[in-house]
Design a protein around this nucleic acid. Structure first.
Lengths: 340, 340
DNA sequence: TTGAAAGCGTTACCAA
DNA sequence: TTGGTAACGCTTTCAA
């Protein structure tokens, strides 16, 4: 039943040439190969339905054509699109993709990276959960290229593709202020004292510095603790009106809205709301939620591209790349206070 | 800079034993190994920070500890959770996960499966795009276990983990009828003449057979053709009232709602709506969208589990497993005609 | 309790 | 233009 795996040797035998020649054929080195040999090999390979073993190739050549990607939060709708981008890019250049989910855990992140290394991936895309800088930096001594996706590390010593979070965040707050909101509730996930969250929050603070009369409260919640979220929401509704809620990512936005729905508060009446990540539903949920859209497909695609570029680069001592892909503020009804 | 990779040989040398012994240690064969040898090796490995190469192991042992998963539609919110389930299961049993996105294309599906095979994955989870039966069946001659996820093939000759689509769909229609809807618009993606869609549709037809007065229209759309979707929607609003729209999956539900929002028709007034896949936003979008919730995490987890079980099974000639995980009909305001 | 040697399926060097 | 051979890093059989 299980047809025995055809190997290079079988082809060599069947084609009456040496293994070396087959290998040359496989690697497209036709320069010094007679056309008939080439044709012949081509035939035999087709005949026997031969496919070279990547494992053997990798072992010998020390190149696996594998990319490893660690995703911090697969439940975030944002992650789908990132994976799509990564996958498209990998495909385009004939790489295969290994994916692991760290699910917010530093230990998992480390474990998965190690596993990827054990599998000899040619490069690593890490959407880090944060607080893992030392480990990430220590990876430099391995000779695997790394690209951080979305979240940079503080000292920016590793290449990173991210969004222009600071300016976007600033733009968002300015919009909110110009609409006339008097208080802001900022909902963030825990363990997110990372570059992205810091930039976003920093922007808020920088803008608000010149507005003494605006109150801002930060609420830290985790999905495992629904009660804390509810408490936070109750507290938020104590803030002076008109108040607006900012969700630090798409998942939080969804969860917060879900809870608020339950207590019957209405967007455009009791509060304004907006968030980061332009998840599909933001445009559908009535009355339309203002969001900061990141180019998440681009994040995936470009980090893949950069990684592969690094893999194939000669001199490894290039300067560090830190690139911000521009996002877009999508203003919708949920924050248009003046039109309520 | 790039620290040279430490190999088994290095450990052997440093520990003053043979490679064989190291290999024994690595594979936990301590039965006939002196405790001091063991301790010693343990030390040296820690010292040199050695990690065995999976590639070399795989080549020799013909087991890669790799699972390959082909996902049909990564943009469907459903896919996140599936990946999470797969990933959790793989982790639990020390497998690593390769993921490829076929994006609705049969050619891509085939290409990715081939690539996985080239990488010697120990097993395959295929969330097929459909219409690829011959190819999938032909894989039986390779000796790689396969589990289909979500979509079975017609002759059910390959193991499959899916949802109880038929009964769920039936339950849904019965609910709609009992509410008093008179016409139904069924929105499905193209190229989805697959088992899942067939079951769901079949259930509709089976139920409606006894209700002559109910009109049902099927609309086939693809995301690339927005105009067709708009046309379909216009047509839908010509159906007799009260009318209800059924979206065949979460993505379609979102897209349809988005378009309908634009033309100003209101749920609970102009139409009822429901869909398959209980995406998070269904519960948030006011007034709450009735959905058929699949256990998508379970689908991922269980197909991973089944696959690994098959991989490690002795006798390969077991009977085919076809398992339906129960989903749940989540009735929300969007179809509660009587309460409008 | 340990080791030598062959081999997994390739690639690359050197020779012919 | 082609082939022999060693090597990649590990496992396994057989022997000691």
């Amino acid at each position: 039943m299980a047809k025995k795996k055809v190997t290079l040797k079988d082809i060599a035998k069947a084609a009456n040439v040496s293994g070396t020649t087959i290998s040359r054929y496989l690697n497209g080195k036709f320069d010094y190969m007679s056309v008939e040999t080439r044709r012949n090999i081509e035939m035999v390979i087709k005949e026997l339905d031969y496919r070279p073993s990547n494992i053997a190739r990798s072992l010998k050549s020390q190149k696996s054509m594998l990319l490893g990607a660690v995703i911090a939060d697969i439940e975030n709708p944002f992650s789908n699109t990132i994976i799509k981008g990564l996958s498209d890019q990998a495909n385009e250049l004939d790489y295969s993709l290994m994916i692991a989910v760290s699910d917010g855990s530093i230990e998992q992140e480390q474990k998965h990276i190690q596993r990827f290394l054990d599998n000899q991936v040619d490069g690593l895309v890490v959407n880090t959960v944060g607080m893992n800088e030392d480990f990430l930096v220590s990876l430099k001594s391995e000779d695997v290229p790394i690209v951080l996706l979305d979240k940079a590390i503080a000292d920016k010593s590793i290449d990173c593709i991210t969004s222009n979070n600071y300016s976007l965040s600033k733009e968002l707050v300015n919009h909110l202020l110009s609409e006339g909101f008097k208080s802001i509730g900022y909902f963030t996930p825990t363990r997110e004292s990372n570059a992205v969250q810091l930039s976003r929050f920093q922007a808020l603070e920088d803008v608000l510095e010149t507005y003494d009369e605006i109150q801002m409260h930060q609420y830290t919640t985790i999905k495992e603790e629904a009660e804390k979220l509810i408490e936070a929401i109750e507290d938020f509704f104590q803030l002076p009106e008109p108040r607006v809620l900012i969700a630090a990512n798409g998942l939080i936005l969804m969860n917060v809205l879900k809870e608020i729905e339950k207590i019957g508060k209405r967007i455009g009446k009791d509060y304004g709301v907006c968030g980061f990540d332009d998840i599909l539903s933001a445009s559908i949920i009535s009355p339309g939620i203002t969001t900061v859209a990141q180019n998440s497909y681009g994040l995936g695609k470009e980090s893949g591209a950069l990684l592969i570029k690094k893999i194939n680069e000669e001199e490894k001592d290039r300067s560090v790349i830190y690139k911000e892909l521009p996002g877009e503020l999508k203003i919708r009804q949920s924050t248009k206070l003046k039109e309520w």
